[in-house]
Amino acid sequence: MRQFTAVVNPTAGGSAGAAALLAVARLLREAGAGLDTEYSRSLGHAQDLARQAGERGKAVLAVGGDGITGRIGGALSGTGALFGIVPAGRGNDFARALGLPTDPDALARILLHHAPRPVDTIEVRSAFHDHVVVLGSVYAGVDAVANRHANHARLLRGTASYYAGGLRAVATWRPARYRVTVDGEEHPHTGYTVVAANSGYYGSGRLIAPDARLDDGLLDVVLIREAPRRLFFALMNELRSGTHVRRPEVHVLRGREIRVEADRPVPYGADGEVDAVLPVTVKVLPGALRVLC
């Protein structure tokens, strides 16, 4: 029987996380599994707790949204530890890409009985912050600005906060001139964003890279070119279904290592939490994380 350690960050939606964990925890314990709960002081502390639990042979559960999921998954990347998710955040995009249920009974069965699936992670290197490993995507441009707005929204939550943040960001964005290098080949680009996607989803359910796969050893690189703002607003709606990739203003590349530079300090983000400015280099780490899904 598996033994679990659940890591909850009370400073980042922890009350919702604790409530989501409560129902799953009861089912795990009733089945005979051991479960410890750790409340972290920060995302960095959550990573430390996860590593320590993994070293003790525990399956580590990230309880919350994409921020804590990405940080804990990144901390366990390459360690061989088992990783599980109890989705309880605003976006839950990585859990969505894995097809994880929100029903406690169905989720408990997966955590107890399913074999782990090896999935890829993303190594992120920059001169402006420490080396990190993330799970979902790295995005540089108007979407990083939108995510900042969403993270600071007080009156809106979930998809509404991301949509409002997107509208605010697009209204003030001026196209950046990028230099995108994919596996050594340079691609000049002027526009709204560059997204290096391991998961198809970002921004609370938006299907930015519909063909991205978590276990193919590649990143889908989505470039959204300069276009009238009214067209970009239409494109934002198409992100719900992934049909935006059919537009001529959207170009998709694939590769293992991507470097993104720009003509000004363009912000980039990752998994809802990394907040820095270009340049950045990202590299896929194939099959580096063992996920219960």
Score class of each variant (00 low, 15 high):
Arg2Asp: 04
Gln3Gly: 11
Ala12Lys: 12
Gly14Glu: 12
Ala18Lys: 14
Leu22Tyr: 04
Leu22Gln: 15
Glu38Tyr: 04
Ser40Cys: 10
Leu43His: 15
Ala50Phe: 00
Ala50Met: 09
Arg56Lys: 13
Arg56Ile: 03
Lys58Arg: 15
Leu61Tyr: 07
Leu61Glu: 10
Ala62Gln: 01
Val63Ala: 13
Gly67Lys: 03
Thr69Ser: 06
Thr69Val: 15
Thr69His: 01
Arg71Lys: 06
Arg71Pro: 00
Arg71Trp: 05
Gly73Cys: 10
Gly73Glu: 09
Ser77Leu: 12
Ala81Arg: 09
Pro87Leu: 01
Arg90Met: 03
Arg90Thr: 14
Asn92Tyr: 06
Asp93Met: 08
Ala95Phe: 05
Ala95Arg: 08
Thr102Met: 06
Pro104Cys: 04
Pro104Thr: 07
Ile110Phe: 01
Ala115Ile: 01
Pro116Phe: 08
Pro116Gln: 12
Phe128Asp: 11
Asp130His: 05
Val134Lys: 05
Leu135Ala: 07
Ser137Pro: 02
Val138Met: 11
Ala140Tyr: 09
Asp143Ala: 15
Ala146Thr: 01
Asn147Glu: 10
Asn151Thr: 10
His152Gln: 15
His152Leu: 14
Ala153Asn: 14
Tyr162Met: 02
Ala169Gly: 10
Ala169Gln: 10
Ala169Thr: 02
Val170Tyr: 03
Ala171Pro: 03
Thr172Lys: 14
Trp173Gly: 00
Pro175Ile: 00
Arg179Gly: 10
Val180Phe: 02
Gly184Thr: 12
Glu185Gln: 13
Glu186Arg: 00
Glu186Phe: 00
His189Thr: 07
Thr193Cys: 06
Ala196Met: 14
Ala197Lys: 09
Ala197Thr: 06
Ala197Gly: 02
Ala197Phe: 01
Asn198Trp: 04
Ser199Tyr: 03
Ser199Arg: 11
Gly200Pro: 13
Tyr202Lys: 00
Tyr202Pro: 00
Gly205Pro: 11
Ile208Gln: 10
Ala212Phe: 04
Leu214Ala: 04
Asp215Arg: 08
Leu218Glu: 10
Leu218Ile: 10
Leu219Cys: 05
Val221Met: 09
Leu223Tyr: 01
Leu223Ser: 07
Phe232Tyr: 11
Phe232Cys: 02
Phe233Ala: 06
Ala234Arg: 13
Leu239His: 08
His244Leu: 07
Val245Ile: 14
Arg247Pro: 06
Pro248Trp: 08
Val250Leu: 01
Val252His: 02
Leu253Gly: 02
Glu257Gly: 04
Ile258Met: 09
Ala262Glu: 07
Val266His: 00
Ala270Asp: 08
Ala270Gly: 15
Asp271Ile: 01
Glu273Gly: 06
Val274Cys: 04
Asp275His: 09
Asp275Ile: 01
Ala276Leu: 08
Val277Pro: 03
Leu278Met: 07
Ala288Met: 06
Val291Cys: 13
Val291Pro: 05
